[in-house]
Design a protein around this nucleic acid. Structure first.
Lengths: 209, 209
DNA sequence: ATAAAAACTAAACGCTGTTAAGATCAAACG
DNA sequence: CGTTTGATCTTAACAGCGTTTAGTTTTTAT
């Protein structure tokens, strides 16, 4: 057990460094992060992180994994109603909300130069949010379950993910609002996005298209 | 006029640096690029680029603008048939082909920390490929011309762009093939992607969905 | 021919991630 | 209980980065 007064040994430096890096990225994106800055925030020397994470990449990989779990929590809390249409819209909105709440983390997640994609935990953790979305799309398409061996199902899930991923990216980079009239563009997230999602996932009862 | 034998003055250093940076990014992505490496490749000192571009960001902005023009050329050469369905598929395939041909440039184009989005040329140049795609989508939807003041049209264009942007991103990050059976995944670009695009943009004659 | 402007170099500054060697503390063991 | 072992962290250094300053060379303009 770590003593509280000891200054040489931190106690739980590993967790402290992850939190410091997470905060830095939340505050100013990846540009703000540096290994030395994270070390300083945790109150240790610049060389301390090496022993716990090997490299800056190792530390950022932990932050990225946390971010994947975080977006999954966004999705988990978004849609569990008995209405598949409302669900898929809510999940989509939640995903885009996440990217706007955590732009730095969103960008980090897809920086293969900063994150260890070979990490054994990565494939599982990073796929989870996408799968959650895929299930919602499948339910919207009135399919009981997705069979990825069935080409049409896999293509549905892939395209659904792609659209949302791209949409989130375009919104984040402020390239989405330009497509709309000023009134909508001014507050696109609140005024335009819900309508876009309604357009993307219309109720199919009477309106077949 | 620059004399050929003068070693002190380069002649057209500006163009040479852009080409050097472009090559570096083509060879090994943004990780390979550094201002000093580009300067060395052009045969000048590390401080020389500053006078022409101000900063590394300035140089990379030029490379990014060239990349936008390049993807536009890919699209231009892809689809001008009399068949809107074939066109939109060909344009989509061309866009994804570009990202696979030039992954480093594709990633650079969306790095707002490396590219001057405020550059007056940027908004026009970067919007051009998207608009070309939007027109194809509109033609596919059997609309004579897109009226961005009409919400449905704008949403169509935005979602079309988003899907392709996301699809390209997923393919590039090798997250797309996992959705398909091994046989297709093995050579996804050739075997899976065309079928995905057919799924995404089906012929609407007898098949309304 | 001379003055002014442009293009480039050399050297330095502060920053980065990483490494090597040494100091410190916690825990395990005889 | 004292000693030893191993983990943890520091200090100091290295190479590389983008950028700045001051000075040198070449071109251009007067």
């Amino acid at each position: 057990m770590p003593s509280k007064k000891s200054k040489y040994h931190h106690g739980d430096l590993r967790a402290a460094l992850i939190q410091a890096a997470d905060e830095l990225i939340a505050e100013g994106g990846i540009e703000t992060f540096s290994l030395r800055a994270a070390a300083q925030r945790a109150g240790v020397s610049p060389a301390a992180p090496a022993h716990h994470f090997g490299s800056a990449r190792g530390l950022l990989t932990e932050v990225a994994l946390l971010a994947y779990e975080r977006v999954d929590r966004y999705l988990e809390e978004a849609g569990h109603s008995d209405d598949p249409v409302a669900d898929v819209r809510a999940l989509s909105l939640a995903f885009i909300t996440f990217t706007l709440d955590h732009p730095g983390h969103f960008r980090l997640m897809f920086r293969h130069d900063l994150v260890n994609r070979d990490d054994p935990r990565f494939s599982k953790t990073s796929r989870k949010p996408g799968m959650r979305l895929g299930l919602a799309v499948a339910a919207y398409r009135r399919k009981a379950e997705v069979d990825l061996d069935h080409f049409e199902d896999a293509a549905d899930v892939l395209c659904g993910m792609a659209t949302l991923h791209g949409l989130a990216h375009l919104v984040l980079e402020e390239k989405a609002a330009h497509f709309f009239a000023d009134e909508i563009a001014k507050d696109f997230v609140n005024k335009g996005l819900p309508r876009v999602l309604e357009h993307l996932y219309p109720r199919q009862d009477a309106n077949s298209m």
